[in-house]
Design a protein around this nucleic acid. Structure first.
Length: 613
RNA sequence: GGUCUCGUAGCUCAGCUGGAUAGAGCAACUGACUUCUAAUCAGUAGGUCUCAGGUUCGAAUCCUGACGGGAUCACCA
């Protein structure tokens, strides 16, 4: 039982016995004591003043005395204004420390026997991964790890958007202008290779579009359709899609290719397979570098036709309705949403339809109770609609659907745009941040005795930690700013700072020859020592909370807090040269647990700890 | 315009279901390595928590409204 629960119960009993009053636990607010006051936990007594008709100080004194006499855990208390500060028996903390150090799974919950699927990354196969994907991947990955630690059986998945007009653009450009070049023949990483042809298509298309704008047809369209406040430049910028669909020769070829693909044209399918395989190879490398993997892959080319049957069934049940033109809709206005199309008039599926079908397939494949979709917040509306539809269809897992929505990563200049070449590439970014770590390392002498390989491994861990921590420490739903020109920080509230705390501890433990620890005579804990123990006592709750909120930033901030407390402790107190053997042994035990919690917590974020740095 | 979302120090961010004097880091300035790794620690300075109401013993936190940023409102995915 958690200590806060025990204290709450004690307070309940106290209120009953002292005043004959019954309260519910939600009125009993207990939090950790602020560090400027004496105590471990603090009870807010204001809520009891009304019923007891006593002053807060009086109630505090009486409750404190009761707890001290009746709750074995409570060693002492003091009252300041309306706050009752409780001091918990040191033996409780010493016990906890000993037990937690023994428990190699400390913080992790026992298996619940419940399955949850986490979807993340889900890239298009026409270009390489960028900074936006990195936020997505790190969130999805750490969420998976956190749910696993909270007792769930997690299936990590991604849906690969391997079909559609965008992929055809890359294919068309390669076929028209590639002259048979391959990643192998050019030595370019294979997903970047394909991405180059996507960019090339856009360039050629822009040229074509510019030329067309000078034609009589174009001028006539401008005259006829432009709004009063639009000049030619603005108008044609917005007209681009229409041009692509109606007049563009390249657009016509791309659409044709898509139709051939859908018809199963062998040549097109082979080209598609070849280029997609290039992309997959490149993605694999990037995922590997990032340290992530998946348990199951879904491909849009397999799922894009799904969902129609469910729509038919729902139509029979009256959940959907059919318009005269044959299109099928659902009315969600009573859920404050709009009418939504689910089947086109030609009977084909749209985006939601696919997602409805895919969700059902996943449920059939894994019988998961919950599904987490890691997708940027621009799709909030889509997921509201999807989840509402699943509820109305009465799917058994409908209540377990969650959209892990996150804000875009902005550059200081604004939004990233692939067309304007302002995208920060994932591979480049990782390379840069590792280079940054290498630069920093050159001013240090700590690991000069190691081999080149060992040093490189450490540098890699530090660089990636800086990048990952920077991104994960921000709450998912908030937009964040990333300046690629400014090097990623390695000092202060960063990944390397947390790693450094771990490394310092490992260094001490390497030097200490002691294997059996005996600190039975060490009974008067320093305030700083107790604070550290309290912080670690909270670790399991932090995991639970992060899992419940699908929020890895809670773990990141916890890591930073704990590392900060340790760094200060390290500075203020000797460990190997402590004032007594008891103190030394106790502190060795303490920092052993700190190291293990830091390592465990950072692992939940996908961040590796070096032994030295 | 409707809906959703964000607004805390110059910058990047914490602040849990309302609780004590709103906290970190970066940048600036100052100090601490013959002592367990200075990627560290300590200090100075920096705030009308966007604004206005409301609920409450108590509001950065909850409610309403305004202002500002963003997203979204396709027979695209």
């Amino acid at each position: 039982m958690n200590i806060i629960d025990i204290l709450q119960n004690g307070v309940l009993e106290g209120l009953k016995s002292l005043y004959g009053l019954d309260f519910t636990t939600d009125k009993i607010v207990i939090s950790t004591t602020r560090k400027e006051f004496v105590g471990d936990y603090t009870l807010v007594v204001f809520p009891f003043t009304k019923d007891t008709r006593k002053k807060p100080e009086e109630v505090g004194e009486e409750l404190g005395a009761y707890l001290k006499a009746n709750a074995p855990l409570v060693a002492d208390f003091n009252v300041i204004k309306g706050f009752l500060n409780l001091v918990v028996n040191d033996s409780f903390w010493l016990n906890f420390l000993a037990n937690a150090t023994q428990n190699e799974h400390f913080g992790r919950q026992p298996r619940l026997g419940k399955k949850v699927m986490v979807e993340f990354s889900s890239p298009n196969t026409n270009k390489p991964l960028h900074l936006g994907h990195i936020r997505n991947i790190l969130l999805g990955w750490s969420c998976s790890q956190i749910l696993d630690a909270a007792g769930y059986d997690v299936v990590k998945t991604q849906i690969i958007n391997d079909r559609g007009i965008a992929i055809c653009k890359s294919m068309l450009a390669w076929r028209s202008f590639g002259l048979g070049a391959t990643p192998a023949s050019t030595g370019i990483k294979s997903d970047h290779f394909v991405g180059q042809y996507y960019v090339l298509f856009e360039q050629k298309f822009q040229e074509e579009y510019k030329a067309w704008q000078q034609t009589e047809v174009a001028k006539a369209i401008f005259e006829q359709k432009h709004k009063p406040d639009q000049d030619e430049h603005i108008f044609f910028k917005q007209y681009k899609n229409d041009y692509f669909n109606q007049y563009s020769d390249l657009g016509r070829q791309a659409r044709e290719m898509l139709l051939q693909w859908e018809a199963g044209d062998l040549g097109i399918r082979n080209l598609w397979k070849m280029m997609n395989n290039w992309v997959y190879q490149g993605f694999e490398e990037t995922y590997f570098r990032l340290g992530v993997n998946f348990d199951k892959l879904y491909y849009e080319s397999d799922t894009y036709l799904l969902g129609k049957e469910i729509i038919d069934q729902g139509l029979a049940k009256g959940i959907f309705y059919k318009k005269e033109d044959g299109s099928v809709w659902i009315d969600l206005t009573d859920a404050k949403l709009d009418h939504k199309l689910v089947l086109r008039s030609d009977g084909t599926s749209v985006y939601v339809t696919q997602d409805i079908g895919t969700a059902q397939v996943r449920y059939q494949d894994f019988s998961v109770e919950r599904m987490v979709y890691t997708v940027a917040d621009e799709q909030n509306y889509h997921f509201q609609v999807l989840f509402e539809i699943m509820k109305r269809l009465g799917e058994p897992y409908a209540d377990g659907l969650y959209h892990l929505s996150y804000g875009m990563v902005d550059l200081p200049t604004g939004k990233m745009k692939s067309r304007e070449g302002t995208v920060v590439d994932a591979d480049d970014l990782m390379a840069e941040v590792i280079e940054e770590a290498r630069q920093n390392m050159q001013e240090r002498s700590e690991i000069t005795d190691l081999s080149v390989e060992e040093r490189e491994e450490i540098i890699r861990k530090i660089g990636l930690a800086a990048l990952k921590f920077f991104i994960i420490k921000v709450q998912p739903k908030k937009r964040m700013v990333f300046d690629p020109k400014e090097s990623v920080d390695m000092q202060g509230q960063t990944g390397p700072y947390v790693q450094n705390a771990y490394v310092r501890i490992r260094s001490i433990l390497r030097r200490s020859a002691t294997n059996s620890l005996n600190y039975a005579d060490y009974t008067n804990l320093e305030v700083a020592e107790k604070e550290l123990i309290l912080k670690m006592y909270a670790y399991p709750d932090v995991i639970q909370s992060a899992a419940a909120n699908y929020d890895p930033s809670e773990i990141a901030n916890y890591c930073y807090d704990l590392a900060k407390m340790f760094h200060k402790f390290y500075h203020d107190f000797p460990i190997l040269r402590a004032e007594s053997e008891g103190a030394k042994h106790f502190r060795l035990q303490l920092i052993t647990l700190i190291a293990s919690v830091l390592k465990s917590a950072m692992e939940l974020l996908g961040i590796e700890m070096p032994e030295r740095m």
